[in-house]
Amino acid sequence: MKRRTFIYNSAVALSGFGAGVNVLDKWASYKDVVIGHHAHRYKIDLNWGALNAQFYPVKDCHEMVQDSRGRIVLLTNHTQNNVIIYDRSGRLIEVWGTEFPGAHGLTLNVEGGEDFLYITDNNRHEVIKTTIDGKVVMVLPYPKESGKYESADQYIPTETAIAENGDIYVADGYGLQYIMHYNAKGDLLNVFGGRGEGEAFFDNAHGICIDTRNPGHPCLLITARQQNKLKRFSLEGQYLSTIELPGAFICRPVIHKKNVYLATIWSGDGGEGTGFVSILDERDQLVSAPGGATPVYEDGKLRPMYQALKIFHHPHDVCVDEDENLYVAQWNSGQTYPVKLYRV
């Protein structure tokens, strides 16, 4: 993989240190790559968070969040260590979790001053709420009471979002495409979405978040990945509007300040290894696509997007830290660790 090539290059440079000038000259001739568009531009650290895979292995790096202490929490479906916690420089702090074979969605919510994690497991067909150090405090099994499911197998949740009042929304992105709305205790309040024709329905409702950018008017942003769309719903489950992102197979939306960040797992016609990162502005327009072609709007419509640089393979989630640096976790990308993008 690229990472190995890079490590090899830097090892050569370090071991050749004594040889002096030649190596340093070569090093100096390298140009740091800067990716992205407009104000959202980044340098790349491919080496961030790389660990000894014999002891801290990953399969798919599905999602990442930052906790209240500033630590970066990675969720992988490798049951040797489902959760890997780093500091922002990529240094390992701790690992935990061996019982999440289908670890997929990771959402952090602060409740009474304490961090809690909501893990969707699409192999166990349930959502598990844990403390930040891995103690299970609640399990939401498949929503039999919804009347929509005949068996747990049909329910393959991919993501959660937690409202300010503690209500829990779960997207069944690989199952029957319904959105479950629970209260904080886990009582099912509402079910909406599902598969079908029309804007209020989904094909691969892969991600969900609470859009808090308009104060006093929170709403839901839900991905329809196969449709290259992001759909806005009220917290009560009413369809409101659609953000069209042609050519961008977006994973979950992540809100940070005025922007929405979306790992984009495939692009163009949906071919393998064609991912990049999408960043929307406060008007929900694509302003930057690190790794992708320049976003261009013609008559208010985004020209279909595609990959321009082979930096990312299959980005699956983006975590944004307080300096607006990005951490990109990737699915099915040679069991590599996350990539960090430094905002410039």
Partner: peptide, 14 residues
């Protein structure tokens, strides 16, 4: 722990 940014020559164009 010092960050080494990746040079552009690491990457292929699509």
């Amino acid at each position: 722990t010092e960050t080494v940014y990746t040079p552009s020559t690491t990457f292929h164009l699509a």
